[in-house]
């Protein structure tokens, strides 16, 4: 493996200082399942890694009915995937977590690492975005909370400044009137990057859709919302005809590229199919 310096931080402040002081080519080292591969395959030039896994207070998972689900930067995908609360209240997150990598990878990889890597095809981002999650960011001078929808600025790029560290994510509470789904489209089930991923989170009041968020993965420079499709669905009873025209609208709102996994046209078609299916699956919560 190409050589790099390993630093272990005991506090957020120390980690942040190391990130600032060690200069370019310094990266946070959390689960490491992506970074170590990038180092080994020489996809990323890395001079220093800053291990944050000894920092206390970043491993907690909490839930309450007003604040929702909050988990820290060190919480692995596998731990959340197996959590009964996630299985029961957030089937969308559960589907995304269980589809990431393999069991072995999920026991090391963290959800926040997957989010901060900012891949347009990251599985955890669409359902978190459809749920309206927000991100807690540590900074030595100016701590802030950012909606996930405003976190990404491009493929692999986020609003994080040098020395800033994501400490946790909060997902709003899952009320009894909510339905959620995440559908991943790939060629196989395990160790697969999404060809297209579609997340839908919706609220139904007296049979009428009072709110809906659609998030589309792997069909743009970042995970995208489909605001026009959402607007067509809000206030309706989500009848088949309305869902079909909104799903068509979603195909116009995405901006896919062609690459080794699929062509842009195919991805666009799949956005239409999966958006319809994801809405149907989200509605099964009320059946």
């Amino acid at each position: 493996m190409r050589r790099f310096e390993y630093h272990r931080a005991d506090t957020l402040e120390q980690a942040s200082r190391l990130l600032t002081d060690l200069g370019d080519d310094t990266f946070l080292f959390n689960g490491g399942t992506d970074l170590l591969v990038e180092i080994r395959e020489r996809l990323r030039r890395v001079r220093n890694v800053v291990d944050i896994k000894q920092i206390p207070g970043l491993s907690d998972i909490t839930y309450d009915e007003t604040r929702g689900l909050t988990f820290g930067a060190l919480v692995t995908v596998g731990r959340l995937e197996r959590l009964p609360l996630v299985c029961q209240r957030y089937p969308n997150l559960r589907a995304a977590f269980a589809s990431l990598g393999s069991i072995q990878v999920r026991n090391r990889a963290t959800v926040i690492g997957n989010v901060c890597r900012a891949s347009p095809s990251a599985d955890t981002i669409p359902p978190l975005m459809a749920d309206g999650a927000f991100i807690h960011i540590y900074s030595r001078t100016n701590m802030r909370v950012v909606p996930l929808a405003e976190f990404f600025t491009g493929p692999g790029k986020t609003v994080l400044a040098r020395g800033e560290i994501v400490t946790g994510i909060t997902v709003p509470p899952a009320g009894d009137n909510t339905g959620k789904a995440y559908l991943k489209h790939g060629r196989r089930k395990a160790m697969e990057l999404s060809t297209v991923g579609v997340a839908v989170s919706l609220c139904m009041d007296d049979g009428v859709c009072s709110d809906i968020r659609i998030a589309l993965g792997a069909v743009g420079a970042t995970v995208l919302r489909a605001p026009e499709a959402e607007a067509m669905l809000r206030g309706t009873r989500l009848d088949a005809a309305t869902v079909k025209s909104a799903a068509n609208k979603a195909t116009e709102e995405c901006t896919p590229i062609s690459n080794v996994r699929a062509s842009a046209d195919y991805r666009r078609d799949m956005v239409g199919v999966l958006t319809g299916r994801a809405i149907k699956q989200a509605l099964e919560a009320f059946a």
């Binding site: 390993y6 490491g32 170590l36 069991i103 072995q104 090391r108």
Partner: peptide
């Protein structure tokens, strides 16, 4: 107690 890929973990961890 949890299975992991030994290649994706540093020995120091």
């Amino acid at each position: 107690g949890e299975p992991v890929n030994a290649c994706l973990m540093l020995a120091v961890e």
